[in-house]
């Protein structure tokens, strides 16, 4: 069993300039897990990346991890 919240934290902290400002809230439903990620305003560009590349890579890894347990996951950057 993975830990999607911790996975998100680890990935996000490695990308931003203000790792202490990274917050993740996990809301788990029957089949869908929602992860709400927030970072310092100046780090928004870094967490999304050019053409959303960073955010999409994070989503891919989260999706793969959740799929092992038959779940879907939605990463929202707020």
């Amino acid at each position: 069993m993975g830990d999607l919240k911790e996975l998100t934290l680890q990935m996000a902290r490695a990308v931003v300039n203000n790792p202490d400002a990274v917050r993740v809230e996990e809301v788990e439903g029957a089949s869908m897990i929602v992860l709400e990620l927030s970072v310092a305003p100046e780090d928004m560009g870094r967490i999304i990346g050019k053409d959303g590349r960073v955010a999409n890579a994070m989503r891919t890894l989260l999706r793969t991890s959740a799929a092992k347990d038959g779940k879907r996951v939605n990463l929202e950057i707020i």
């Binding site: 990308v15 960073v54 890579a57 890894l61």
Partner: peptide
């Protein structure tokens, strides 16, 4: 796709 995402994120982490 997953392998490439894993590599990309790891490169960011290590480079940082």
């Amino acid at each position: 796709q997953t392998l490439r995402a894993l590599q990309y994120i790891l490169r960011l982490m290590v480079s940082k």
